[in-house]
Design a protein around this nucleic acid. Structure first.
Lengths: 120, 120
DNA sequence: AACTATATGATAATGAATTATCATTATCTG
DNA sequence: CAGATAATGATAATTCATTATCATATAGTT
């Protein structure tokens, strides 16, 4: 059975208030003051996945990132300068037209890249 | 100066005739009969990038993939069952509308996932 | 054919992300 | 509060992709 702990809450809170998905390392750094260990970060993230509270976002060339599972449909923007990742709400749509004959579409991801306002 | 070799040609040919981008490992396997070593595959791929003949395609959770640089604008479909990656021609467009105020869009990638015709 | 620089293959080394281990600590329940 | 068990942190271990090393083979030139 799962007990509550300050670390478990901290991970969830941090992900919920972030502007985009975070990696294990991101979280470890942001929560450094709390003294949380990296192993614990990974453990809690994996538990979050098991429990269905979190989902992963895979972006090219980077480590796996995590975000709350209950966010509305959205996509991501990665800054080529600072490498931060931001949620972008909305979706271009029209993915179906791209799917080859005989293929079945289950999911899609749109990844924008460029410069964020701070780096532009 | 760059000499021509059967391996260099083989890599280019294989990438040109593939249905989607290939990883170093993919290429090593496909060219196994030729006796090419993995180090050579990586070497030739990096040279292809330097020479501008190849570009990389990063897909979530997988190794870097390579494709010829002169393909027309397209995106990718990854099969969740066999993990093969296929080019899909065309583009949904309308990415600009997603870009947050103050951000500059340089590139975009659309990644579809589901089942390919063989796995559906 | 001889010569010189590049190409190659086997394998060791590296780097980064993630998982495993284990002794200690904290939480929850009664 | 006491007992049982989950949570934690430090660190070792693992896994996978990629790069470095180096002795040998090969291509291109004379």
């Amino acid at each position: 059975m799962r007990r509550r702990s300050r670390h478990r809450e901290a991970i969830q809170d941090t992900l919920r208030s972030a502007v985009g998905p975070l990696s294990a390392t991101d979280l470890h750094e942001r929560l450094a003051d709390s003294g949380i260990g990296l192993a614990t970060v990974y453990r809690l993230l994996n538990e979050g996945l098991e429990d269905g509270d979190l989902v992963t976002v895979g972006l090219p060339g980077g480590p796996k990132r995590f975000e709350p599972a209950d966010k509305p449909h959205h996509h991501h923007f990665e800054c080529v300068a600072c490498h931060k990742v931001f949620d972008v709400m909305g979706c271009p749509g029209g993915m179906d037209r791209l799917v080859p004959e005989g293929f079945t579409l289950e999911q899609h991801e749109v990844i924008l890249s460029g410069r964020c306002d701070a780096c532009a």
